[in-house]
Nucleic acid binder design. Structure first.
Lengths: 156, 156
DNA sequence: TATAAAATCACCCTAAAGTATGAGTGCAAA
DNA sequence: TTTGCACTCATACTTTAGGGTGATTTTATA
């Protein structure tokens, strides 16, 4: 870490050290030939060097590494299954509320008998309704009715 | 060459010039406040602050900010109604190519007889395949098989 | 080459779906 | 009040689907 720092700021340090040395020499000569009246300059010079170093150290310490956030898009494929009843088609075909109900349950895979039980009616009633549904959808069997109803968006 | 040197070491030169100017100022102040003995502490304090700031400035200028690159995955929802076969589910259930074929035609509303004709096989073959499909899907009737297969994304 | 799985086919039987015909009740609109 | 439609239910019959058992051929893999 320190070695790394030294390596990277070699020029600055050398410059600083040279300047400090020069200052020191200048002061030393001045102090040698005069009394301590000029000790202030030496004191000031040392202070300058020390606090410069301190400032550098603080900056290094406080500096936060810049974070570069790169967003990578990841596609998530979602099948849209939002069903919206085609009221217009429903009206056009003239399917009654009950007929649609039977069709829906048919599509869910219920047998006629099961649908009858679900709706609290007799099996005959269900046969009647499904016959009517087939007639209006112009189909021959439940699988055809379901397929067509899905395509016409009558059921989800 | 010289310009290049100046450009690269601009901060250092500025620092040096600043230091020199400050030294001059120091000398000038020393000479001006030679009488005021109490000015030493104030003088020293100001010097410390100035050179700390200068050090920080120098560090910021010279130090290249460390850049941390962080990769963040951002999910992009792609809504589609295009049918995508769930190969995994298909494999899990162990549906054969032929079985899936029969299931698809079943969902289209074809009777067993019609499917047989379409695939150039006998009605018995279709019954066998559909029986196998029901077994693997754990259902009892074609409408149930179709409903489940759609939900499992085996058929569109 | 042997083996397992897929594909194909047959036959028997039952259950479920689908068709046809008819009837009764309730409700809303003309 | 009458009429038409939706809903409900019944009966009889036909067709289709579904379950079970068994067999043969084809295909791919170890």
């Amino acid at each position: 870490m320190t070695l790394n720092f030294l390596a990277r700021h070699r020029s600055v340090l050398i410059y600083g050290a040279s300047l400090a040395a020069l200052l020191f020499l200048m002061k030393w000569l001045e102090w040698r030939f005069l009394i301590a009246d000029y000790a202030v300059e030496l004191y000031g010079g040392a202070l300058a060097i020390i606090f410069t170093a301190l400032g550098i150290w603080l900056a290094v310490k406080l500096m936060k590494p810049k974070v570069n956030t790169v967003f990578v898009e990841k596609e998530v494929i979602v099948k849209t299954n939002d069903f919206i009843l085609d009221e217009q088609e429903l009206a056009r075909l003239g399917l009654s509320k009950r007929e649609l109900e039977v069709l829906q349950l048919m599509a869910e895979g219920l047998s006629n008998h099961q649908i009858a039980e679900r709706l609290f009616v007799s099996l005959n009633t269900i046969k009647t309704h499904s016959a009517k549904v087939f007639e209006k959808l112009e189909v021959q069997r439940r699988t055809q009715a379901v397929d067509k109803a899905k395509k016409l968006r009558l059921i989800p």
